[in-house]
Design a protein around this nucleic acid. Structure first.
Lengths: 334, 334
DNA sequence: TTGTATGCGTTATCAA
DNA sequence: TTGATAACGCATACAA
């Protein structure tokens, strides 16, 4: 027997309207009745039913987060930021792991729609037309995190992958490296693949270094990709002195493979990562990497959602600054 | 303008009752009307409102998961399993990070109650009396994951921490080690602290090895605890040849600290971890560890919740088997 | 300051 | 096979 507003009203000898006002701090009651009602609420342990509330108010105090099932470590930092501010706003988040599958994404989108969520943050993946359409039809604020759309007017929060990659590469160059390899995401990936390759190429070119095709190997972003990629790379580009890994996981894969091949990092090979995940400081040697302010970005994405909700207007995108975090996987060449 | 069941009914020239029946596959309509209604639903892009549904059906198809903010890597594996089966059951999960604070936990519990969730999995923390009371009052199924209650009759899913620790220690002993240190959680922690210490002690004793107080250092479960703990341990127990770390993160901390001190693992020091997180295979050297089937445990915990929901009865607790995963951080002593 | 009554979008109970 | 209509638990416009 769940206890409702009626029970409170009856026991306090007032109408449900009055109880409602008190619960919601709407004006229209005396100090005495407030006392009494609050008292009864306490006694009965009454808690309003969010469903009934949401049905009327059109607000469920819930936002949805869509994440592809890549790099749970990356995602958990984003989500941590999102949850933090969402909680501060008195809302909850429902996280949906799409496994990068269109079918599952659409399915989740429908679920979120039925749950009448108030807003959505869409993470790390290309916003396809039908995704966009579905969300647009839901008529709720949406923001992109660690991705952007060139086709639709949706605000986003990210770093500049191109410039971050440029910085990482330039860092290596300034440390005296000339023969630099890269293990990157696929060129077809216009979010985290091609832009980082572009940044790498641009930095090399800016310093009048030419890069051959064999210097770049395109795999995915996880650990295994790092070890596989390194095997390929070292094979076709044995004289390299440094590698730029497109993710920290990949960098760890390189570290691991190099260790097994008795290649000492950083003495014989320097490696720089990308992301600055928690594991970057846990590796041996600790990983030098270009940091994205992951938690901050997560926070901002949620803040923008709430800002849009409250203002009913769109909002500016944000490009966060990146920075090089120096640890011990890169050595200066003399 | 959100479109409702009424719109469908009107356009299809039937009553909302009929539409409802068709949407829910309840008997009571002809093939023709079904065709027509389905057609209209398609055209209008109608999706039922979950709030209204839940209000009447008492089912929101949402379950809550409470996790303390320790070891996001551990949690993300648990959650991954939970989400998987929850999705299979056509439900969603709301994850609440309690930061191990009673206040926040209670607060989240109220939120979940207002959202009328169908069930709850409570993770990795002691189920305090008031938590239990709140959840009990919600009258929904609950299961404990990676924790258990000695005070309340709540089904749980976990491994035997004591026996797993016993196995890890015994593994070290069988590899020829006699002087074995341990970095553990606090003794006050009756879930993951004391039991693992007990297992360690028991294994030593069973092999007629006595352990001195200085052989055990009690810290937390994360990376920093590992490095700090190792410094203490090596200081007060320099002749040790192996360490049992109460978590993989701690083990990585040890690896890291040892590397900096030029202590070679496993040649000069063997280390075994606990959990078998993804990072266990990413470290250098790859970490030998006692594995908990984390994802499976997460799955099972959710399955039990749904089983309880459907059967309206309680359910048996499950102790999952653990196993030693041999990698390269332990060396056999000759 | 307070209460009555209506509606939010469904499902379920009846009667037709 | 169908359709009215009463709930579900609450917020709110309007009356008092």
């Amino acid at each position: 027997m769940t206890i409702t507003i009626k029970d409170v009203a009856k026991k306090a000898n007032v109408s449900i309207a009055t109880v409602s006002r008190i619960v919601n701090n709407k004006p229209g009651y005396s100090k005495e009745t407030e006392q009494k009602v609050l008292q009864v609420i306490q006694e009965l342990g009454y808690h309003p039913n969010g469903l009934a509330r949401g049905l009327i108010s059109k607000r469920t105090h819930t936002i949805g987060v869509l994440v592809p099932d890549i790099s749970s470590m990356l995602m958990s930092e984003f989500i941590s930021g999102i949850e933090h501010v969402t909680h501060d706003y008195g809302s909850s988040v429902i996280v949906c792991h799409t496994e990068s599958q269109g079918q599952k994404t659409r399915q989740y989108l429908q679920v979120l729609k039925e749950k009448q969520i108030d807003g959505i943050v869409f993470t790390s993946e290309v916003l396809k037309k039908d995704y966009y359409q579905i969300i647009k039809d839901m008529d709720i604020p949406m923001v992109l995190l660690s991705t952007e759309s060139f086709d639709f007017p949706v605000p986003y929060v990210k770093v500049s992958d191109r410039r971050a990659a440029y910085s990482a590469t330039e860092y290596l160059i300034k440390k005296g490296h000339r023969k630099i390899g890269m293990i990157s995401g696929r060129r077809g990936d216009i979010i985290a693949g091609q832009p980082r390759i572009d940044g790498f190429m641009a930095a090399m070119k800016a310093h009048e270094l030419s890069v051959k095709d064999e210097w770049i190997v395109t795999e995915g972003f996880n650990f295994e990709d790092g070890v596989n990629g390194f095997h390929k790379l070292i094979d076709q580009f044995p004289e390299m002195t440094a590698v730029f890994a497109a993710s920290d996981e990949v960098a760890l894969g390189i570290l691991s493979a190099a260790y097994k091949m008795n290649i000492h990092v950083p003495d014989q090979l320097s490696v720089i990562g990308y992301d600055n995940l928690r594991i970057a400081e846990m590796s041996t040697p600790p990983l030098t990497t270009v940091a994205q302010p992951l938690v901050e970005m997560g926070k901002k994405s949620a803040e923008l959602v709430f800002e849009m909700m409250e203002s009913n207007r769109s909002v500016e995108s944000r490009i966060f600054p990146h920075e090089i975090v120096e640890r011990q996987s890169v050595k200066e060449l003399s």
